[in-house]
Design a binder for these strands. Structure first.
Lengths: 367, 367
DNA sequence: TTGAAAGCGCTAACAT
DNA sequence: ATGTTAGCGCTTTCAA
C-alpha cells in the first residue's frame, strides 16, 4: 500500500470549485447534502476531489462555521497517563467512550501536565462540551472549564456547582453500609485510611476539621457515612484515627497502613476509602505477619476487579455506568434548561477480609 | 461555588475590542503576545474580558487561522470502549498520553462505532496528526486517515506503508525465542491459537495460505517466528494446527483451546499469540482437568500484568514504550522528511506454564 | 506600541 | 438544481 502524497498546497473547497467551474456551494453540497445536486454532478465533484487529492472539507473550518466541534473534552484529576492505570478511571472511560461512539462524537483528553501547570489546554480545546472526572473544588483547570461557554458534566466531584450536570454515586450510603457491617461483626476500634483531602500534599493524621473541610466531596461523604455507622454503635468519631495519603497507589496504601498500625496497634478493623489503598494495606498486613481477617479486618471501596479477585470486602460502585450516564447527560439532552443530578447506587460486597471479632476484647480496655 | 452564567451571545474578541475602543489586534496580543503591549493596557483588556465573560480566543477560530489544532487523533482497531479493557491497549495509551502531556497536546479518540461504519469521524477530526494503533491493512478508517494531509504514525500494523512512520516490536524474534524454548523442552506436537487473521469473522482452522495472506502483519510475524523455530527441529509447519479466533477475549481463548484440544488431543504444547487467549486457554485446560504444565504446556504473547500474576510463559513487549515512542515520532520530529521505523525488542519470559516434556512419547507415534 | 486590512476554509441563507 | 453573498472568530503582515 502507498501512503500519503500530500501536495505542497493542499486543495481546498474553493480551488476544487474553480477547477470544476462550479460554485463552492455545489462542492460543499456534494459532501454535506447529496440530495441537493444531481448524482452525475456529485460524482464529477467527488472524482475531481480524488484526482486533486482533496480530502474533503477542512474539519476546523467547518467547525468554525457550524459551531460544532464534534468532540467532547475530558478533564481528569491527575495526569492523563495516570487514568489508564487506575481501574476505576478506566471503567469510567470505557462507559464514556461507549456513549461517545454511539453519538459519533470524538473524545478529547485534555493534557494536564504536572510540569507546565498552565490552564491553556482547556482554552485550546475545540469541543462542544466537557466532562470533568473527579477533580478538586479548587482545581484551576476546572475553573477554566467553567469559563468556557459549553455545557459541562461533572462526575463525582466537585458537588454543588450550580448550573452544571452531575453524575455520582451514593458514597455515604456505601460506607454507612460498610460501617454497619463492621459494627455487626463487633468491631469498635476502627482505623481509617483515606485518599487526599486537599490538593496540597499532606500525608498523615487528618483531624475532624480537616476531614470536614476537605475539597473532595467524595472523601467527605465516605468518611461521613462511616462516621454515622460508628456513631450508631456509640463510637466517638474523634477517637477514630484517620490517616490521609496524597498518592493513590498500592505503596501509599501499604505505607499508610503501616503508619496506622504503628500508632494504633489496637485496631481490629481497617477501613480504606479506596480498593487500591486497601490492597496496599493488605500487603502491609501480610508483610508484618498479621492475618486477615483473623487478626485484622480490612475493607475498601470501589469494587475494582483486583479487589474482587482477592475477595476484598468493599463497596462496589458502577464505574462504567457513571461514564455512560455522563455521556448521555452531555450528548443526549436537547433540553438543558434544568441541571440534572444523577446518583447511582452502591452495593456492599462482603468478601473474605472482614470477620467477626473474636472475643479477646477483655485484654484491651481502650486504645 | 457558582457555575457558568453564559450569556446568550458570548463575547468575541471583536466585541471586546469595540467595547474598549481598541483594535482587535490589541486584544489578540493581550492573550498571545503579552510583550507587544503595555502592561496597563493588557490589564485593562483582561479586566474587561473578565467583566464581559469573555473566555479568551475561540479555539476553533484560532485553529483555523494558525493551522494548528493542538491535538492528535488516535485511531484504534476496535470500538473505542474495547481499548480500555485491553491491557495492552491501555499500556500503549498510557505511554501515548504521557507523550501528549509533555507536549501539551490533546489526544482525540476517534469514535469507530460498529454501528454506523461511516468514516466521517476521521474526516471530522480537527487534529495535527494521527496515531493509528494496530489496525488491518484494509481498514477503511485507516484509508481515510491516509487521505488527511497530516503526519501519521502507525503502531504495530499495518506495516509497509510508505511515507508513514511506524513503531512496533520484534514479533518474529519473540515467537522464535518462544518456539525454541518449547523445542528445547522437547515439544514437537504443538498447537497454535491465534488472533484474527482478517477483518472478516472467521473462527476455526487457518491453513498456511490463510496465515500468509493475513492482513494483520503482527499475526503473520508471530506465526512465522514460531514456524521458524519448529522448522529448526524438523517439524513441518503444515502439520501444526492453527486455530483462529475473531474475538479477543478469555472466552475466545477458552473456546479456541477447546476446539484445538478436541481435534488434536495429542498436542503437548499450546502456543497462543496473545496472553488474553492464553489465559482463556488456561481456564479451559483447567476445566477439562488438564494439568498445566504437567499435561500441557501453555504460552502466550504480550506480557500483560495478569499473565505475570499467574506465571504464564510469554513474550513480553513494551507497550508503554511503544506509546511514548509513537508520541515522540509524531510530536517531536521537526524534520519529517524521511519516514522513521522503530522496532522495540521483545523478551521471552519463562513462567510456570511450560515444562520439559516427560518421556511418554512412546505411547503416541503421531497425531 | 497600536491599528487597518486581508484572509484561514467553510456553510447557510437567500437568490435564481 | 445551482450560484451569490456574508460572514463564523481569529491572527498576522504591514503600516502608522
Amino acid at each position: 500500500m502507498t501512503g500519503p502524497q500530500h501536495p505542497r498546497r493542499p486543495a481546498t473547497l474553493a480551488s476544487l470549485a474553480a477547477e470544476l467551474g462550479v460554485s463552492r456551494t455545489t462542492v460543499s453540497n456534494a459532501y454535506n447534502r447529496p440530495d441537493q445536486l444531481s448524482a452525475p454532478l456529485r460524482e464529477r465533484v467527488l472524482e475531481a476531489a480524488r484526482r486533486l487529492g482533496y480530502p474533503g472539507p477542512d474539519p476546523v473550518a467547518r467547525s468554525l462555521r457550524t459551531r460544532r466541534a464534534g468532540a467532547v473534552g475530558l478533564l481528569l484529576t491527575e495526569a492523563l497517563s495516570y487514568a489508564f492505570r487506575d481501574p476505576g478511571a478506566t471503567g469510567f472511560l470505557e462507559g464514556l467512550a461507549l456513549a461517545c461512539e454511539k453519538a459519533g462524537t470524538g473524545l478529547l483528553l485534555i493534557p494536564v501536565s504536572p510540569e507546565h501547570s498552565d490552564v491553556d489546554s482547556v482554552y485550546q480545546a475545540g469541543v462542544d462540551g466537557f466532562v470533568v472526572y473527579s477533580v478538586s473544588e479548587d482545581d484551576p483547570h476546572f475553573r477554566a472549564v467553567l469559563q468556557r461557554p459549553v455545557p459541562t458534566v461533572v462526575c463525582d466531584q466537585p458537588t454543588g456547582i450550580t448550573g452544571v450536570d452531575r453524575v455520582g454515586v451514593d458514597d455515604r450510603a456505601g460506607t454507612l453500609a460498610l460501617g454497619r457491617h463492621l459494627v455487626e461483626l463487633g468491631h469498635r476500634r476502627v482505623g481509617v485510611l483515606c485518599m487526599r483531602l486537599s490538593s496540597h500534599r499532606h500525608d498523615g493524621r487528618a483531624d475532624v476539621a480537616r476531614q470536614e473541610g476537605s475539597s473532595y466531596a467524595v472523601q467527605r461523604e465516605r468518611l461521613a457515612g462511616l462516621r454515622a455507622a460508628l456513631a450508631e454503635a456509640g463510637v466517638d468519631w474523634a477517637d477514630v484515627p484517620v490517616i490521609e495519603r496524597f498518592e493513590h497507589s498500592l505503596d501509599a496504601g501499604a505505607d499508610g497502613a503501616a503508619t496506622l498500625l504503628d500508632s494504633h496497634p489496637g485496631i481490629t478493623a481497617l477501613v480504606c476509602t479506596s480498593d487500591i489503598l486497601a490492597l496496599g494495606a493488605l500487603r502491609e498486613a501480610r508483610d508484618r505477619g498479621l492475618r486477615v481477617p483473623e487478626d485484622l479486618s480490612v475493607a475498601g471501596f470501589d469494587g475494582v476487579p483486583e479487589a474482587e479477585r482477592v475477595g476484598l470486602t468493599t463497596v462496589r460502585q458502577p464505574f462504567r455506568e457513571k461514564g455512560l450516564e455522563a455521556g448521555r447527560l452531555l450528548l443526549e439532552r436537547g433540553d438543558r434548561h434544568v441541571p440534572e443530578h444523577v446518583t447511582l447506587p452502591t452495593e456492599l460486597i462482603v468478601g473474605a477480609t472482614t470477620r467477626e471479632l473474636r472475643q479477646s476484647g477483655e485484654f484491651f480496655s481502650g486504645w
